[in-house]
């Protein structure tokens, strides 16, 4: 039983196709509490789609997804994916947060409103509580002086830190990052990686789709290499990156080095 609780996220045999083109071909993935998982792989390999399925931005064609003891989707009697009822899905939504490649901050809201909107509207927090919590998060992100700024007044790195704070404000059990540094200028990448590193130190469970190999090696407990919709190889970060077993992984690593 205890072992079961350790597994925060379980994805089994996930299939997903867009207009007949299979993007995920039977992916299984488990994430334990406090674990940091990096997903690497060439573009088009299905990494982002996997995250989008885990965060309900896409529906799976077949497979099972479970957060702790709450099932999001499972195989129905007809062999197709069967999603749980709305109430259950709503509860599951509160388990995770997602940080986008393009931040997707709300441009018409100030930094403070961006962070407090969901806690107030979704969790029903009072404005004072939500703002106090937001200020703590901003302090952690080193952006305390920016609470009244608007997204367009901030650098890409600052915007991404705000979007991380926005996701954290809902106290998720697991945080997904979809290439969080890909839209940033190289000199701004470091500040985001530092934030993720700090979160890892606090034992935040995270799944990070990334192209930053050094980061994957240094921060991730486990690295998953995906290609053409399947998991080719996975294991302890240092092993995979230093000593890949599969030829496809080796080829990919040679390209990104």
């Amino acid at each position: 039983m205890e072992n079961n609780h350790e597994k925060l996220l379980v994805m089994q045999d996930i299939y997903k196709a867009f207009d007949g083109t299979a993007v995920l071909k039977g992916i299984s993935l488990e994430v334990n509490c406090g674990e940091v998982v990096a997903i690497i792989g060439p573009s088009g390999s299905g990494k982002s789609t996997l995250l989008r399925c885990a965060t309900m931005l896409e529906t799976v064609d077949a497979g099972t997804i479970r957060y702790l003891d709450k099932t999001m989707v499972t195989i129905g009697a007809d062999g197709k994916a069967k999603y749980s009822d709305k109430k259950q899905l709503k509860e599951i939504r509160l388990c995770f947060g997602l940080v986008f490649q393009n931040f997707n901050l709300f441009p018409h809201f100030s930094v403070m409103q961006n962070i407090t909107e969901a806690p107030i509207r979704v969790l029903g927090q009072s404005k004072q509580d939500a703002e106090a919590n937001a200020r703590n998060l901003l302090a952690k992100m080193g952006l305390s002086e920016k609470e009244d700024a608007y997204p367009c007044q901030l650098s890409g790195g600052q915007q991404q830190r705000i979007s991380i704070a926005r996701a954290l404000a809902l106290n998720p059990k697991i945080l997904f990052f979809d290439e969080p540094t890909s839209a940033l200028d190289p000199e701004l990448i470091g500040e985001i990686l530092k934030v993720i590193r700090d979160l890892a130190a606090e034992k935040m469970t995270m799944v990070v789709v990334t192209h930053e190999m050094t980061f994957a090696r240094d921060v991730a407990d486990r690295v998953i290499f995906m290609d053409e919709g399947v998991i080719v190889e996975q294991g302890v970060a240092a092993d995979i990156i230093k000593n890949p077993q599969s030829e496809r992984t080796r080829a990919f690593l040679r390209r990104v080095e």
Binding site: M56, N104, E117, R121, S163, A167, L170
Partner: peptide
């Protein structure tokens, strides 16, 4: 942008909240 809808969905905002807010 669709990203705005997706960000709102992931944050758990309802369809109505997403539209009006």
């Amino acid at each position: 942008p669709t990203g705005q809808h997706e960000a709102a969905a992931v944050l758990g905002l309802s369809k109505v909240q997403t539209f009006f807010r």
